[in-house]
Design a binder for these strands. Structure first.
Lengths: 208, 208
DNA sequence: TGGCAAATGTGAGGATTACTCACATTTTGT
DNA sequence: ACAAAATGTGAGTAATCCTCACATTTGCCA
């Protein structure tokens, strides 16, 4: 997951350079939080991180890869979050409750982290990032599919359930984007509405 | 809707210039369909449209405005589509059926028009376009809200229903994006799943 | 019809910014 | 201590959006 080959131009072997990479990402985070990833200039990032532009490009082949690296971290984080939440649910009610909890956590996370918002809201939307969002949705959907099939005792059309779970996860991302970009009162209504809709869908899918 | 002040640098008064604008948009459409809006270069657009770069910028203040103008057309089209579909539904069943029909139409439209896909999939995603998508979702949600309140005899919490309708519309856009970027078999499952979820939500909202 | 002002057209060039590369410096292994 | 490998540097390149000073065309009126 981390230290992805395409993401890094050269794997830094020395300690100092690894610290530099960390620092670059930290500063990138601050810059994106302050002004959005589109407004983040590579020159500025290098300067604020106390690194020459050449060094920056030694670690990151292009601007997208910096954002990609940040997104990767949040993805890993959220994946583990979901994994933990769905790992050992064994009934419909447990699953619905776990999912509700998950949505709340996600919502808080998005509200608290302007960087995630910016990245996923797409200020700097390139194909790489969209593919990434799709991957994340698929991975999350796979976990949900597994949980549902487990509850159903592995009975049912797996591909149909997978498609329905993919929609749940992908539209979940959209719901978060929507909820954080409207007044918080409306945002909470939207999140609640999403939870109801998904709750019914899960109920429907777990019924044999 | 058209001839928006921010969109056009100068309102073309002469016939020739209006034809030129039409032609520019036609060529822009072709270029975006062929290679994506990100890869569409303003110089290329000018040349292929048989227009100097200066003229191009006389009509469109920047590149985003060209894409904006195209998006505007499709938005108007889809708005009318929804308006017509929801105009005189007067029962829950009628509404659900009308909505189902609408989704199918939308899905076909997206499948048939690579330009819409590209624009809404966000190859060239800028804030303007996102704001626009939000506006469209809000407008569509308002129509759905109106239909539901009509069916309920104007009884119920309008703001809650509005939020739920907004989620339906906004996640509908996401569903379309998802459905067109996966194999068509899976895409149809996803569309069907969305219809079921929305159907249940509408049923729930129309119940007094 | 001739002539002038307003509208429209033009493309070389300015400005920004992601990214490269030839060379300098630091670290590592022996 | 020395060479080789790793890492650092920033002036310069390339791509592309957009401007502006000037040229051409159109509409209008005597």
């Amino acid at each position: 997951m981390s230290e992805n080959a395409k993401k890094m131009r050269k794997a830094p072997t020395q300690k100092r350079s690894r610290e530099r990479v960390e620092n670059i990402l930290k500063v990138a985070c601050e810059l994106i939080a302050a002004q959005g990833s589109d407004a983040m200039k590579m020159g500025e990032l290098a300067q604020k991180a106390g690194v020459s532009i050449g060094s920056l490009y030694q670690y990151f082949p292009d601007k997208a890869s910096v954002i990609h690296a940040l997104a990767d971290r949040y993805n890993d984080e959220s994946r583990h979050c979901i994994e933990d939440a769905l790992a050992d649910v064994s009934s419909k009610d447990e699953l619905v409750r776990a999912f509700d909890q998950l949505i709340d956590t996600y919502y808080e996370l998005f509200l608290a982290e302007p960087v995630i918002c910016d990245i996923w809201t797409g200020t700097q939307a390139d194909k790489t990032l969209r593919d990434m969002e799709m991957e994340v949705s698929r991975a999350n959907a796979a976990m949900l599919t597994k949980a549902i099939l487990r509850i159903r005792g592995n009975d049912g059309d797996a591909s149909t359930i997978a498609a329905r779970c993919l929609l749940i996860m992908y539209s979940g991302e959209a719901t978060m984007r929507l909820a954080i970009s409207v007044p918080s009162k409306e945002g909470r209504e939207i999140v609640a509405s999403y939870k109801r809709m998904v709750g019914r869908e899960i109920t429907d899918m777990t019924r044999v």
